[in-house]
Amino acid sequence: MEKKVLKIGQISDAHIGDDDRLVQDIDVRKNFLTAYNSESMKDLDLLVLSGDLADNASTDAYSFIAGVIKDSKVPVCIIPGNHDNLEVMEKVFDLKDKVHNGKCYYRYDLDGRSIFFLDSADGTVSSDQLSWLEQETAKIDGEVLLFLHHPPCLCGHKFMDLRYSMKNIAEVQATLSKIKNLKHIFVGHYHSEMTIQLEDKTVYVTPSTQMQIDPNITVFCLSSAAPRWRLIEWGENFMETKVYFSNTP
């Protein structure tokens, strides 16, 4: 019997501040709520928060997010980004069995399918994680999905590629190329919507609910303060994904 199409929401780079004050003149809490409460996020099977949940890794920022998602009707999977602090996150979120040697990485099974999450918060994916990913995906016959914060490739984003790209891209790509049942990788970090072909895999860069950065110039330039987020529909031999956005921040 054909498995159901899973509906997955992805929110990335919320950069929630310590309190209600604006972050870089942006109401990031309002932006996060706009994404979370949008019609496109109704009837999900899973919600993924893919890093940079907080701007300064404060307990209050994480507590705001925890307060929003506590009544979620679906599971919520969380990974840290470079602005996050995993030790603080562990005090606020239930990350039991998801943190190993100071890194947050894990496999989540849903309706007979497997989704993998890696920790690139320090700008790298550790060799321990890569070995684990290769071993775990080999145990699975069907297709898997992967989420992490940093793109495992350069993306043609002139500002982010130059300053904030993943530090061990070659090592990560060498492992990914071995995993033949992985075709779709979802990331954040770049504050832009981009789709990159990496050999037989597609990397989907999900924009931010905080703000978007102009990818066409080498210096920082805000292109929008309106939130954006992603919806993923994943079935057997089927993948459809769309970025949604609000016109007003």
Results as ranks from 00 to 15, higher is better:
I79Y: 03
P80W: 01
P80V: 08
G81K: 06
H83Y: 09
H83Q: 11
D84M: 09
N85S: 10
E87W: 08
V88S: 10
V88F: 11
V88T: 14
V88W: 03
M89I: 03
E90P: 04
K91F: 10
V92R: 01
V92G: 03
V92Y: 04
F93E: 05
D94T: 10
L95C: 03
K96C: 06
K96A: 03
D97V: 00
K98M: 10
N101C: 07
G102S: 02
G102L: 09
C104Q: 08
Y105L: 14
Y105V: 13
R107Y: 04
Y108W: 15
D109E: 15
L110G: 00
L110T: 03
D111Y: 13
R113A: 07
R113W: 03
S114N: 05
I115N: 06
I115G: 07
I115C: 01
F116E: 05
F117L: 07
F117T: 00
F117M: 08
L118P: 09
L118F: 02
D119N: 11
S120W: 00
D122I: 12
D122W: 04
G123I: 04
G123E: 00
T124Y: 11
S127E: 15
S127A: 15
Q129S: 01
L130V: 09
S131E: 14
L133P: 05
Q135K: 15
Q135G: 13
A138R: 06
A138T: 10
K139D: 03
G142Y: 12
E143Q: 14
V144T: 11
L145Q: 00
L146Q: 05
L146M: 10
L146A: 01
F147Q: 03
F147M: 00
P152V: 10
L154T: 02
L154W: 03
C155G: 04
C155H: 00
K158Q: 15
F159N: 00
D161N: 13
L162Y: 02
L162V: 02
R163K: 14
Y164W: 13
Y164N: 13
S165V: 03
S165N: 14
M166R: 05
M166N: 02
M166Y: 05
K167S: 13
